[in-house]
Structure formats: structure tokens, C-alpha cells
Simulated scan of single mutants.
Amino acid sequence: MPIPSLKDQFAALIAAPSVSCTQAHWDQTNRPVIDLLAGWLGDLGFSCEVQEVTPGKFNLLASFGSGPGGLVLAGHSDTVPFDAELWTAEPLQLREADDRWYGLGVCDMKGFFALIIEAVLPLLDQPFRQPLLILATCDEESSMSGARALADAGRPLGRAAVIGEPTGLRPVRLHKGIMMEGIEIQGQSGHSSNPAYGHSALEAMHDVMSELMTLRR
């Protein structure tokens, strides 16, 4: 089957909603995006593996060539939630204006996968010395469960990676990381007749927040 044009790929990816959110009423499956990419890449000769992370959430790992090392082109398949009323046009429909394409996920970051396909098309009739891997993860915008599942699976990936997340639309050699910590405070029940019998978790958290704000400053 012929691969759609670059613009048609963009349009199809944007039209496939794949919102990820910690709030269940916004959250959606990313399967339509994964199916589109797996279909196109499979037709180009890539070996496509779909990993189910949780019900309705999937990673795609597509590889061309074999052996150790190689290059990974990585991105995520989900978008943030959206309010169509705040858009000047339909967010799930590709729109062209002022020599630009607009739509939910054009830059961040469904469009990266269409750009990958456009870039590799002229190269696939040549022998690859090392494999090329294309990775599309789920839930980057919320829980990062896709990346975690991939790490837990222990799959060896390439020697180098290009991540298509835009940073002012300029190449960046390295990027900042992120570390998350949680603080849990357990109080003790008391009684209004003698508050000294209890320990307020809210008051303790107030102290924690003050210390965190001091640390931030």
C-alpha cells in the first residue's frame, strides 16, 4: 500500500485523538495513533512490536535492520487535554496558514513521526550497518507509564537517540532531566476537648511547604 504524503500523514495523526491525563474523563487510548504508525512502518519493511502497557495504552517499537547498537528516533504518541472552545480552528483537523501547519500535536509531537518517515524513505533501499529503531511511547504527558514499561522490560535500545520533542525548534545536545519525590504525612486523631491528644497532618504539611518554598528560593 502506498505511504500517504507527508501532509496526509500529519493530518491522519492529528485526527486520531490520543489525550493522556491523570483525570479519567479526559484520558483516551492511543491505539489509533499506534495502528497508523505500525501500518505505515510495516509497509516500509520495519519490524513492528506493539507493547500493551495498560488497557488502552500502547508503545510501538519499530526496527529496521538488526544487530547491536543503532540509532533510536524516539517520541510520544499522546497529547495534553484540550478545550476546543479556546482554539481558533478545529484542533483535530490539520490547518495550513502562513506557511505553517496547525493542529493538536503538530509539534508536540505526533508530527515527528511523519518527519521520520519522510527522512528515511530514500534510505531504505540501502544496507544498514546498524539498526534503526523508531519508538513511540504512551502517556508521556501524564504518568510516563510507557517509558517506564519499556525500561522495566529491559529491552536493549540503540547506542544513540534523537528525541523529537521540540526545544525552540533547534537541536539540543543534552536536555534537563526530571526527578519526582513524594512526601506523605500521617497525623494522629485527637479530640476538640484536648487537641494535645492529636497531631495535625495539615499543620505538619504547612511546615513542609514552608521548607520547600525556602529551598526553592
Rank of each mutant, 00 (worst) to 15 (best):
A12E: 14
Q130S: 12
T214N: 13
L71G: 01
L44G: 05
V33E: 13
G154Q: 09
A74W: 02
S192F: 03
A204Q: 11
M179R: 15
A151Y: 04
G105K: 10
Q188P: 00
G105N: 11
A119T: 15
D108A: 03
G103T: 06
A161N: 00
G146D: 12
C48A: 07
F128H: 08
A89H: 13
P122C: 13
C21Y: 06
I3M: 07
P68D: 11
Q126K: 14
I163S: 00
V50A: 03
E52D: 08
E211L: 13
A89V: 02
A16F: 04
G164N: 09
A196Y: 03
A151R: 14
T29F: 02
P91C: 04
V53P: 01
W87F: 03
A136W: 07
G198N: 05
L132F: 07
V33W: 09
T79L: 02
I183D: 07
T214W: 10
V19R: 11
K57W: 02
D108C: 01
G56S: 08
R170E: 14
V53R: 13
L123W: 05
A74S: 15
E52A: 13
V80F: 08
D43L: 03
G69W: 07
R31I: 02
E140L: 00
G45P: 08
Q23W: 03
P55E: 09
S192I: 11
P55S: 09
M179G: 07
G45V: 10
A38I: 02
D43A: 15
A16H: 12
T29R: 07
L215G: 06
L104V: 04
I116W: 04
A11N: 05
R31G: 02
P127D: 09
D43S: 13
P2V: 15
D152H: 09
D43Q: 15
H25W: 09
A161V: 15
F112L: 01
G42K: 02
L174W: 01
L212C: 11
P4F: 14
A114E: 07
A161I: 15
R95L: 14
L115S: 12
P68I: 07
